[in-house]
Structures are given as C-alpha cells and as structure tokens.
C-alpha cells in the first residue's frame, strides 16, 4: 500500500511543469523515506533529480518500495484537473501497480476528483551522482538568475560563468557582439537583491543557455536558487522546496575541443 497526500497540491503541479520540457517519462521511486526521481534529457546532457521527504506530506505511507513509471505528458493532463488550492493524494494498493490513483480535494472537501493514470515500465538509466563539495556556490534570487539567462540567450547560445571571491560574471559572445553581467556579493535584506557567494576555488565554466532556461521553469518553486560548480564538473542548479525537499538540475559543461 502506498499513499502520499500533499496539502499544497500546487507544488506537485509546479514540479511537473518545471520538468516537462526536459524529460518525457520518469520513474518515481517511493520508499518509507519519501519520493525520489532522477531522469536525463534525451541527449544525456542534463539531468533532473527530485527528492520529496515523507515528513513534508500531510499523510504518507509506503509499506514497501515501489517504482512508478509515469509519462510526464499524461501526468500533466491529469494534473490540469487539479485546482491550485487542492490537496493532491497519490495512491495504489498493488505491489506491482499497473496504474496510480490521484485524488484532488478542494479546501471545503466539497469537490473530490479521482483519476487513475496508467503506469509505464521504464528501464532506469540512473546515474550515480556522488555528493560533491562544490568549490564555488552562488545563492541568488531565482527570478534574477532566470532573467540573466533569458537576456543573455538573445546574444549567444552559450554563457561562460566565472567566479571570484567577490563576484560572479556571466559572459556571452555572439554574432552581434558580446556582453557580460557581473553580480557582486550583496547581503541586502531584499530577497531579489541578495547574492551569497561561497568561493573556495574560482571556476570558469561554459554552459548551453537553452538548458539553463529550461531549468528556470522551476522559478515558481523557490525564490532563491543555488548554482554549484567545480572545475571540470557538471553544474548543479538547486531549487529547495520548503520543508518538503529539493529539485536539482545537473548540466554537463561545454569545453574547447
């Protein structure tokens, strides 16, 4: 028996909206500790990793680990039927479920929707991602980072991110010309302006903006985003989902041939 009830169902809707351009189908692994999901884009350049802790749910029960293979497109269709204020409950009684039940309830419990989504059997192509001590970590407004990526992607397809003790520089070079945006440490008490740099080792890495713009669809999940980098490592972009878990994106760098 597996049942997970999320009080703020809108979070689940936002998560699916944030990943639906990147991955087509995912395996959600349910265990006693919560839900986890890892999936790569078709080119194996980017990866999304979701972890939702059981104590972030209103109700959570998972008698034994199960894997739920979902088509993101079909999941989206079902979640469109959930109101932003609804609670969302996922449920199945089977051990090897062939479908997953969804219940959407409005606040007054006066409207209850029930859907059953057919499950897919997907071979898991999961990667072992070691816990990394990143040498450059940038915490900043997710809206601001999203804006920087959008603005720079009109000049070039790739952005070079260079960190130093007191600032991070986003540089682009394209046919029309070049440009850079430098953001300094800023302990402002306004979320949108605050920038926290923890630079043990400066890095200079280049990434495809197309993927960063896809990751930034998660901006509605958290007002802050963290960029985690080490030389010759994929970038890890993390959106923490308050007291529920986190949505992480990994992106392989571009390097000179």
């Amino acid at each position: 028996m597996f049942e997970a009830k999320l009080q703020q169902g809108v979070i689940f809707k936002k998560i699916v909206d944030a990943i639906k351009d990147l991955v087509k189908s995912v395996n959600i692994d349910a265990s006693t500790s919560g839900l986890s999901m890892q999936a790569m884009d078709s080119a194996h350049v980017a990866l999304v990793s979701l972890k939702l802790n059981e104590n972030g749910f209103k109700d959570y029960r998972c008698d034994r680990p199960i894997t739920l293979g979902l088509s993101i497109e079909n999941l989206s269709k079902i979640l469109k039927c959930a109101g932003n204020d609804d609670t969302i409950t996922l449920q199945t009684d089977e051990e090897e479920p062939s479908s997953l039940k969804f219940f959407f309830e409005n606040q007054q419990a006066s409207k209850i929707s029930e859907f059953s989504l057919n499950l897919m059997s997907l071979d898991s192509e999961s990667l072992g991602i070691p816990d990394t001590d990143y040498s450059s970590v940038i915490q900043m407004s997710s809206a601001e980072f999203s804006r920087i990526c959008k603005e720079l992607s009109s000049i070039s397809e790739t952005v070079e991110i260079e960190t130093s003790k007191e600032s991070v520089k986003f540089s682009v070079q394209g046919d029309i010309g070049a440009g850079s945006i430098t953001v300094k440490n800023n302990q402002s008490d306004k979320d949108v302006d605050r920038v926290d740099l923890q630079i043990d080792q400066p890095v200079k890495l280049t990434f495809a903006l197309r993927y960063l713009n896809m990751f930034n669809k998660a901006v509605s999940l958290s007002s802050t985003v963290s960029l985690n980098m080490s030389e010759e490592n994929p970038l890890m972009v993390e959106y923490k989902i308050d007291d529920l878990g986190s949505l992480r994106f990994y992106l392989a760098p571009k390097i000179s041939d």
Partner: peptide
C-alpha cells in the same frame, strides 16, 4: 567552438 559534454563522462551508470 566549445563541444557539449555528456553527463555520462562525469557520472557512472546507476
């Protein structure tokens, strides 16, 4: 021109 790397070059399967 910079070449796009793949994640498999940094992380091992499963």
């Amino acid at each position: 021109q910079k070449g796009q790397q793949l994640l498999n070059e940094y992380y091992n399967q499963g």
